[in-house]
Design a protein around this nucleic acid. Structure first.
Lengths: 125, 125
DNA sequence: TTGACATGAAACCAAATGGTTTCGTATACT
DNA sequence: AGTATACGAAACCATTTGGTTTCATGTCAA
């Protein structure tokens, strides 16, 4: 009925969508073990500070990043916690690619002649 | 040498971007254990067949879905394999939220008040 | 106080995205 | 042969997205 809403983190933005952009993934990586102000962050990317700032906001709305005001600067740091949702989403599918590995293993062990026969797309190109 | 080269799927579209859309995630879920033709698939979504078809194409370009022509219909099925990339991307960040769990656990053990009630960042200040 | 630095807000823009309708074509059914 | 079904392609449209430039505000340093 009522979703548990496990923590008081109301993700205004989807974590799936947040990590869809390569720049945003780069930001997460950069902030992985250090807290950084915007200008320093943006020096690592080929776009304006403002653009980076907007990406940071999206990450923040997804809960993937926390900001802290220090004097005249705003420092950001990673918060990997929302990625747990991604993890659990992924976990569901894990068995399906494991199946695939299984069948590939069986295939390799049996004999490696004529992959075409097994159909599938193993030999598609 | 004569190995099938298991990663013979050149992903034209990003898997990150492919799963960013909720409709597309719904499609993956639907195709998880059955192969289905487009019309049957689209009956599960509140949009036109053509729209669903376009989503399927994006999934296909990301390698997350395989298509097979059977008579006049095109049947789609899940291929979870590209999700392994996501998994390895995620694996890197795992230790960061584990840190967080660790500290939360320590926090909980030191005092038995329900952390839920206090909101997640109770320890923040 | 004056000026430099750090940042966000706003207005703006081009391209991508998610959707639609229309139409053509291949396959199946009688 | 003729009709219905399954589908993709194309043209089109509104909104979102990712980026820019400009401007206002707050803070630090001399």
């Amino acid at each position: 009925m009522s979703k548990p809403n496990p923590a008081a983190s109301p993700p205004k933005h989807d974590v799936f969508q947040a990590i869809a952009d390569p720049t945003r993934r780069g930001l997460l990586l950069l902030l992985v073990d250090q807290e950084m102000p915007v200008t320093a962050i943006s020096s690592h990317f080929p776009m304006t500070r403002t653009a980076v700032s907007k990406h940071l906001r999206i990450l923040e709305e997804a809960g993937l990043v926390k900001e802290r005001k220090v004097g005249r600067e705003t420092r950001y740091r990673l918060d990997a916690d929302p990625l747990r949702e991604l993890k659990s989403w992924l976990a569901f599918y894990e068995r399906f690619w494991e199946n695939k590995i299984e069948s590939l293993r069986r295939y390799v062990e049996s004999d490696d002649t004529d992959p075409q026969q097994q159909g599938e797309d193993a030999a598609k190109s």
